[in-house]
Design a binder for these strands. Structure first.
Lengths: 131, 131
DNA sequence: CTTATCCTTTACGTTAACGTAAAGTGAGAT
DNA sequence: ATCTCACTTTACGTTAACGTAAAGGATAAG
């Protein structure tokens, strides 16, 4: 069973980003694809990493933050200091996400209201047109 | 009952941002405080707006997007086109937030795992120290 | 053989969201 | 009176995350 490989273009298309972005993430130390000659070759593992980067972005992580997490995760040294740094970061992120959850819920409710009003208004307008 | 008023510094301190940011938001058309001479005077309504801007930021809204929403909300013209634009935007944002919710849940679970491992490792290390 | 389509590197350009410094105004305390 | 402090405007600087153009190499199709 041979592993599935990707070119940069394929990955870009599939994840709906540009090749430039992928190269930039590599420049930033977030990816390390192998090479076939001068061309980059991405494996499943690389794709997973890339997806993690994108998820991080959606959640408001900077590339630098994501890199720190990757580095911590990669270095399997697990020194006491490292672990505590890790726990500290997770704690912090948890707080941010909790806040985000609150924000999302609040905004969702407001969107519901706005939507209801809009639809109300629209039907009123249309009734006017009929009459 | 006289309404409570704020200076820019008070607002900045309370919301933990800089005065510069608040001025920048005004420059961007998001705020319109009254003046006492040359000094800005903020009322409750302005504070609410500012809070909305900050919540928007936490959710990944650009200032431009927030402004568009404010403008749509402010202009009470409620033309059919306007309303449909509004509905379209809310729909779009709802999608983004749904994605964010998924992302948060996924990450939360991973954080749980990481935390568990870290704590495990730490107690192991400490047991080693005792022995 | 050339045309097209990927890929590559190098390097300068761009945008958002402020930071920061300079220079000045107005009110209150000493 | 002058000092201090919070406010003001103007304007240039900064950072992240790419965009984009230039110039070229490799491979498959016509």
């Amino acid at each position: 069973m041979t592993e599935k490989l990707y070119t940069i273009g394929e990955l870009a298309k599939e994840l709906d980003i540009t090749s430039r972005s992928i190269r930039f993430y590599e420049e930033s130390g977030l990816l390390n694809p192998t090479r076939n000659g001068q061309n980059r070759v991405y494996k499943k593992k690389d794709k997973v990493r890339l997806k993690l980067v994108l998820r991080g972005k959606r959640l408001g992580f900077s590339l630098a933050e994501t890199k720190t997490l990757f580095d911590l995760y990669d270095s399997h040294q697990n020194s006491e200091a490292q672990l505590e740094t890790m726990l500290q970061m997770t704690e912090q992120k948890r707080a941010v996400m909790t806040q985000q959850l609150e924000d999302i819920q609040a905004l969702m409710m407001e969107l519901d209201e706005v939507e209801a009003r809009c639809k109300d208004e629209l039907t009123t307008i249309k009734r006017g047109k009929i009459a």
